[in-house]
């Protein structure tokens, strides 16, 4: 707990690449648009109130027991690369849809995923990462819905992996209830071009730590 990191090298690099990718896209657009005002790419902004000393985290350690989870890592989420890295992919993927209450891939979903996995496995697309973003409709309870949405993304992930896509190129997220019914029961597939043509995301910390500053 004492060695809290604010940024990992991977996130820093991802941010740089994201910025570069955005500049690249801007360059391409420059011919037809006279001036595009640059704006931050991140969807979220984080504002922290005055931060106390990190000792606050350790103020009461009596519940700490068992294995420490500090130091655990997870793959960086390609969605952190931003819109620029998405545009570089050069194609969009239609969402796949589910029946209410279901996490089963129907034949249409399988057909789409088969097409995507073929495309993703082509050597010239080896640097494309895929985020699978699962949603559900408001017929689901809020709590259970997050799990159902995630289970849909994981079902798609398993299908892609079973058909030969390297799991390291896939990142699944459950977003719970979508607001845009009736197409809410879906998994969106978002492609991102990895930095430096890398075929898998860097690792970032997954264990407990101080929240990252913007």
């Amino acid at each position: 707990m004492s060695n809290l990191k604010h940024h990992s090298a991977g996130v820093m690099r991802a941010k740089m690449i994201r910025a570069l990718a955005f500049v690249f896209v801007l360059g391409m657009l420059a011919g037809c648009v006279s001036k595009i005002k640059e704006r931050p790419l991140r969807i979220t902004t984080i504002s922290h109130p005055a931060k106390p000393a990190p000792t606050a985290v350790k103020a009461d350690d009596e519940t700490t027991s068992g294995t420490a989870n500090t130091g655990e890592m997870r793959p960086a989420n390609p969605m952190g690369l931003g819109e620029g890295a998405r545009l570089l992919v050069g194609r969009e993927f239609d969402p796949i849809y589910f029946d209410s209450d279901s996490t089963e891939l129907d034949s249409e979903a399988r057909r789409k995923l088969n097409e995507y996995v073929t495309w993703l496995k082509e050597p010239e697309h080896g640097h494309v990462w895929i985020a699978l973003v699962g949603y559900c409709d408001s017929g689901q309870a809020v709590k259970f819905g997050y799990n159902l949405a995630m289970a849909r993304a994981l079902a798609a992930e398993e299908f892609l992996v079973a058909n030969g896509l390297d799991r390291k190129r896939i990142y699944s997220i459950g977003y719970g209830r979508a607001t845009d019914e009736p197409t809410a029961n879906r998994v969106e597939l978002l492609g991102f071009v990895g930095p430096d043509g890398k075929s898998e995301p860097d690792q970032v910390p997954a264990g407990p730590e101080e929240m990252k500053e913007e």
Partner: peptide, 20 residues
């Protein structure tokens, strides 16, 4: 989050859901 000063820390950042 500490309610007193809104200081935040990450409890769990495993791939996928860390929820409910």
């Amino acid at each position: 989050m500490l309610l007193r000063n809104r200081y935040q820390w990450r409890l769990s950042g495993q791939s996928g859901l860390n929820i409910s």
